[in-house]
Design a protein around this nucleic acid. Structure first.
Lengths: 189, 189
DNA sequence: ATCGCTTTTTGCCATATGGCAAATGTTTTT
DNA sequence: AAAAACATTTGCCATATGGCAAAAAGCGAT
């Protein structure tokens, strides 16, 4: 739980009592490789914090191809925001790419913390908006750069991730085919 | 100012007194085509609400090419969040694509409203996170689809925008060259 | 160590997009 | 109205990426 507390305290201050209250609601959970944290067509029910492992957000486009939209790694929150906040069905899957250790909060507990702890809502909002801004920043270059440049930037941005995910996930994230990505890797060596 | 009030009230309730207070801080402003609302290298100083017109967010990549990252049209907030919130220099320009009519709030006034009006912070956070989620959702398909599909989706998503912006801006937004976009348009007709 | 399964690489060729420069069309200025 | 400035389209060819299938490599179970 230590990682979670450190993470939270980056965004604002809480006293020990408040932290303890948060921790009483926190549940540790294992999610095995390929299992889902949340699913398309269902309403996201939990907020998670990844202690160990990598997850991805993915969906199927209208050609039926599976597209990885995003990777989330250690020390980050994972939640399908739109679904969780608005109680609407999600349009994407959140799936464990490797075995994951996660700390989760049920929606009811999360809401209770928001109602109970003064200043917690501000911290949560900071966390969320930072994560969203980062997401935009990471995906933006994928539009305008060529495939090799995208791959190289990915290596820089996610050095921890690149060797732990299947090539096919990475390829769809970068917007290229698996074989093109394989050739790009060959050329770089 | 009516548009602004309607916009705000979509996200939560405020009484007349609170609305009036907000409006005392609101300044109407014209921004001419090609002028900047905020600039790279400077700290964003205002939050804006576009009453009329279209703006874009753009930057220069390492090849010196000008890339349009995003379009913002009527009835939306415009602010360089990362710069505004953290008082750091912006890495992008926010520029009027057409003549714009905007309602602006200075940073000091905006902060005062947040401190004064109970519930205003919650409304603002809802507005911001909706806008960010939308931004991610709009840019994501640009990575995985082919150029024609991107253009067609853009037409659907921004029917009001498509005929009011130069081809070059649109092309860089879609991640293709101007001539390719021109050919794509020809093929569609 | 071997077999079977999955992932990655490679070859071959088709297609989409880029680069550049000229031509055409459109808007603004004088 | 003409000229100038700017925006868009087009032609020609180069290059990057895709599609498909086979080969090779890697991995886990027995």
């Amino acid at each position: 739980m230590k990682e979670l507390v450190n993470y939270i305290l980056q965004f604002g201050n809480l006293n020990q009592q408040q932290i303890d209250l948060i921790l009483t609601k926190a549940q540790e959970k294992e999610i095995k490789k390929e299992e889902y944290f949340s699913e398309a067509g269902k309403i996201a029910a939990e907020v998670g914090f990844i202690v160990d492992g990598i997850m991805r957000v993915c969906y199927y486009n209208n050609k039926g191809e599976e597209i990885t939209k995003y990777f989330i790694d250690e020390n980050n929150l994972v939640v399908d925001l739109e679904s969780f906040d608005n109680n609407i069905c999600s349009s994407a899957y959140v799936q464990a790419v490797t075995d994951c250790k996660v700390i989760v909060f049920s929606k009811a507990d999360w809401q209770e913390l928001l109602d109970t702890i003064v200043g917690w809502d501000t911290i949560v909002h900071k966390i969320i908006s930072k994560a969203l801004i980062q997401k935009v920043a990471r995906r933006s270059p994928l539009v305008s750069e060529d495939a090799t440049t995208r791959y190289l930037s990915f290596m820089e941005m996610f050095p921890k991730v690149i060797n732990r995910v299947p090539l096919s996930y990475l390829a769809s994230y970068l917007g290229i085919t698996q074989s093109s990505l394989s050739r790009i890797r060959k050329n770089i060596r």
